[in-house]
């Protein structure tokens, strides 16, 4: 492999000043499961790799006791998120997604922040977090800022990070009452596969436990960036959550999606499957909302 110097700062400020010092010859790395592959392929040629893995305090999910928000440090491995009781209990939709990313070996090393900043259309990690109205905290030379995760993705491989800025954590609002959500990764095989389609649905119910108060539908690999199916969300609001209405919401989501033909699947099939899977995840979200409300 190409020679480089590996730097291991202990704080965010130290990491940023190293990036300022080395400029374009430096690249941040966390788990390294993407960066090292790209260095081997010659797509990246850094002289300095600045590791974010040794920065203290960003490596596990924790609950902010005052606000009820869940903080997921960007340098958390998928494995640590998968095994977090907090995530399993309060945000099963995140568990749905991270448990199917890569393999055990990859999940033990690769980080959620790395998955997000790659900004590939197939990023499994992003969809549930957008469905949950998460925010991304970003730190750079100008200090900290926060953006809606939905607005973080600008195009394939492009996200809202200035040179030298670091995605530090994801902030997820407290779980809403009478709410359930679910995610499915759809591919041709179960293991070691990028999704042909990713579908996440959140349903928040009125006190009658049948009327939809709020819906979130987000699709992966259905557009250049994670795609909110706004027409389908609007259709569901105020309606009874049942098979018929979820079928129509699925049809609308398929219609407004920007699916295309690619090596992993053709557009017409993807559009059909958006319909099927939005309904399926809607029913699962409904079931989870009822379970939690018991």
């Amino acid at each position: 492999m190409r020679q480089f110097t590996y730097l291991t700062p202990k704080t965010l400020d130290e990491a940023i000043s190293l990036h300022v010092a080395h400029g374009e010859s430096a690249r941040y790395v966390a788990g390294g499961t993407d960066v090292l592959v790209k260095i081997k392929e010659g797509k990246f040629a850094p002289d300095y790799l600045i590791s974010l893995k040794h920065i203290i305090g960003q490596d596990r999910p924790f609950l902010n006791q005052e606000t009820g928000e869940l903080y997921i440090g960007a340098f958390c491995t998928h494995g640590s998120i998968e095994q977090s009781p907090l995530v399993q209990h309060h945000y099963p939709i995140i568990h749905d997604a991270v448990k199917n990313i890569g393999s055990v070996q990859i999940r033990n090393v690769a980080t959620i922040g790395g998955n997000l900043v790659n900004a590939v259309p197939s990023a499994d990690g992003a969809i549930p977090l957008i469905v949950l109205d998460s925010k991304a905290n970003i730190y750079g030379t100008k200090g900290q800022r926060s953006v809606d995760l939905q607005r973080f993705f600008l195009g394939p491989g492009q996200c809202d990070l200035e040179a030298g800025e670091i995605l530090t954590e994801i902030v997820i609002p407290p779980p809403l009452p009478r709410t359930g959500s679910a995610y499915i990764k759809h591919g041709r095989r179960e293991a070691m596969e990028l999704p042909m389609l990713g579908v996440g649905v959140l349903l928040c119910l009125e006190e009658d436990m049948t009327t939809c108060a709020k819906a979130r539908i987000c699709l992966g690999v259905a557009a250049p960036t994670p795609f909110r199916a706004l027409a389908a969300e609007k259709y569901l609001k105020g309606k009874t959550v049942d098979e018929n209405n979820l079928t129509e919401a699925g049809r609308l989501a398929g219609q407004e999606s920007k699916v295309r033909d690619s090596i992993r699947g053709v557009a017409w099939y993807r559009r059909e499957m958006v319909g099927v899977l939005v309904k399926r995840m809607g029913l699962k979200a409904l079931e989870r909302a009822k379970e939690r409300h018991k």
Binding site: Y6, T8, T33, K53, G79, S103, Q105, I106, V109, M192
Partner: peptide, 26 residues
């Protein structure tokens, strides 16, 4: 050499990892 096949799997502190994508420094 890219984390797809698992032939290079070793155990680091009780966790299975792909040694082809893990820096020796770590």
């Amino acid at each position: 050499g890219s984390g797809e096949c698992g032939a290079c799997t070793v155990i680091v502190d009780d966790k299975a990892v792909n040694s082809c994508l893990y820096l020796a420094a770590e």
